[in-house]
Computed example of a mutant assay.
Amino acid sequence: MNEQLHPIFSLEKIYVKDLSLEIPNAPTIFLERETPEINIQLGGKNQTIDDGLYEVLLTVTVTAKIKEKVMFLVEVQQAGIFRILNVPNEEIDPLLGIGCPNILFPYLREAVSDVVMRAGFPPVLMSPVNFESIYHQKKAETDKN
């Protein structure tokens, strides 16, 4: 019997792996009326957990400053466990670098906004991210080396 195995791509679990909030200049920072400068740094990585199971991790650091004074610093690691089976090897890397981050990003965005609001500040609304472009850019850099 020549039975065709169907590709499997499923989300097993989404979770916040790490969350950090710092307000080093509280309580006086709450008296500031200037609009802060927001700096957002986003990164990602993945690892194999078991045969066909992968953890994908998005990490964001959001820093808000007024001049040189830090209003707040938030770091969030949003993770997901994905099951990928019967998929050609050349398609797994794009799934881990594009598909999985696209699924995780709304959760990361919500975690950042929520923690910033709970800290007493207006929410930080992160703009959508083009993970496909980031993936291809990183791949091109890796292929050069």
Rank of each mutant, 00 (worst) to 15 (best):
L5Y: 07
H6Q: 14
I8A: 09
F9I: 15
L11V: 14
E12P: 02
E12I: 12
K13T: 10
I14T: 09
Y15V: 00
S20I: 08
L21C: 09
E22A: 15
I23S: 07
P24W: 03
L31K: 11
E32N: 08
E32R: 11
E34R: 13
E34L: 12
Q41K: 14
L42S: 04
N46W: 11
I49S: 08
T59K: 12
T59F: 00
V62S: 09
V62Q: 10
T63M: 06
T63Y: 02
A64D: 08
K65V: 10
I66D: 09
K67A: 15
E68L: 09
E68P: 06
K69E: 13
K69I: 14
V70I: 15
M71L: 14
M71Y: 00
M71W: 01
L73R: 10
V74K: 04
E75G: 09
E75M: 12
V76L: 08
Q77N: 12
Q78W: 03
A79F: 00
A79I: 04
I81V: 14
I81H: 00
N86Q: 11
P88L: 07
N89S: 13
E90S: 10
E90D: 15
E91Q: 14
E91R: 11
I92M: 04
P94L: 07
L95Y: 08
G97T: 00
C100S: 04
I103W: 02
I103Q: 08
F105R: 04
Y107N: 06
L108R: 01
E110I: 09
E110T: 12
V112Y: 05
V112E: 03
S113Q: 06
S113E: 06
S113Y: 05
V115Y: 01
V115R: 08
V116P: 05
V116W: 08
M117Y: 12
G120F: 04
P122L: 10
M126H: 05
M126R: 06
S127C: 05
P128C: 02
H136T: 07
E141F: 00
K144F: 09
N145M: 10
